[in-house]
Design a protein around this nucleic acid. Structure first.
Lengths: 205, 205
DNA sequence: GTTACAACCGACCGGGCGGTCGAGTTGCCA
DNA sequence: TGGCAACTCGACCGCCCGGTCGGTTGTAAC
């Protein structure tokens, strides 16, 4: 029994490894030609496998898309896990921004699929991801609400401010990838958060 | 000859009218089911035409997508046309934000197609739209640069600040449509621009 | 009444897609 | 050494999509 469990775990791990490798290749192709224009045959070629073998690892094309969504969301959710809710809310927001930018720099394909093809998910997969997105939104919103309560943030609409902040960060998937070699996520996050935190208006001194 | 010209112009106008009507229907369907899942047959049914008739008005599915891009960009470009370059840059930015939000409220289908399916455009159409996007970006960037030069804006990275601002506004296509009945573009623009202009940080008084 | 042309469409087509089948091959454990 | 399960794939399938063909109708000009 213990043996069996061990064996089972081993093969499962190898399976998981391979899935991740496949995912990386798929993300590259998705980023290059787009999700819809990448056929399962092209995907299989890219990974160096036969098409049926690809289906051995993923039951459908949607499942690949779902796995990419999962991978991306889990990174972001880890990043905002409530490790230190007492920390400076500016730092927490900035850190969330960096997470997003780093993810864009390191896995542009994941992010693009995530941003542009959430609507292609269906049924259970869609619900699952929707829940995770909601959870993530609430975390960020929570930081902002806390900031307002502590009189560190100005009194603003928490929902719309959260949307605005996330929009500002997420939108980077459209322009940051080609710059990622030159400018680090930290650097860009500062340039992005600067106006948002301190205001675009130059207060006379 | 004059007659012919008149006749020609009339039919062309009618043609253009019909194209716009078709476009409106298509945008609704694109918004409902997505660009790729909307087949030409479904589109034709939605408009109440036969499929070949649809091809009488648009030479291809891509051409419909292009026309939607065109329509959206021309509204935005009109909005930032240099009518009053001396105006308060905060007001000009706010006005740009309102344009985007109004467009989202009134034509969610156009905006969604514009945001998610720019990459589906090819060749000449893509170049055309890319040029318009660039032009628009430069306009907004110009406002920000001017604001910095006039010491009205804090000294920040113009490119990244422009990306941030546009990201904040554009992202609204993901959340604003269901709220559009309750909250006007002006109202939402203020909630969005407030932190961005004045800063999230509450300065002690 | 004839010409001309925009508007319209039922029926069709070729192709490529996501997905499957059946037939191996490998590698591990008893 | 046998047996079994994971792994591999060439060939195939049915569907449905974007797009086309060949034609009819409505109407305005002369």
């Amino acid at each position: 029994m213990a043996r069996q469990a061990t064996k089972k775990r081993q093969t499962t791990e190898a399976h998981g490894e391979k899935r991740n490798e496949i995912l990386r290749h798929c993300a590259i192709l998705f980023d290059k030609v787009g999700y819809h224009k990448a056929s399962m045959q092209m995907l299989a070629d890219e990974v160096g496998l036969g098409k049926p073998t690809l289906y051995h690892y993923f039951p459908s094309k949607h499942a690949i898309l779902y796995a990419i969504h999962e991978a991306h969301m889990s990174v972001l959710l880890d990043g905002v896990a409530d490790k230190d809710p007492a920390a400076n809310p500016f730092d927490r927001l900035r850190s969330g921004c960096i997470d997003i930018l780093r993810q864009i720099a390191e896995h542009p394909g994941y992010v693009r699929a995530f941003m542009d093809h959430y609507e292609d998910l269906e049924g259970k997969m869609r619900n699952e991801i929707r829940a995770q997105r909601k959870e993530y939104f609430e975390r960020i919103r929570g930081i902002i609400v806390l900031g307002i309560e502590n009189k560190q943030f100005r009194d603003c609409d928490p929902d719309i401010t959260t949307y605005g902040f996330l929009g500002m960060c997420n939108w980077a998937y459209k322009w940051y990838p080609p710059l990622a070699k030159k400018r680090s996520p930290e650097e860009v996050a500062d340039a992005l958060c600067g106006p948002f935190f301190e205001g675009l208006r130059l207060t006379k001194q």
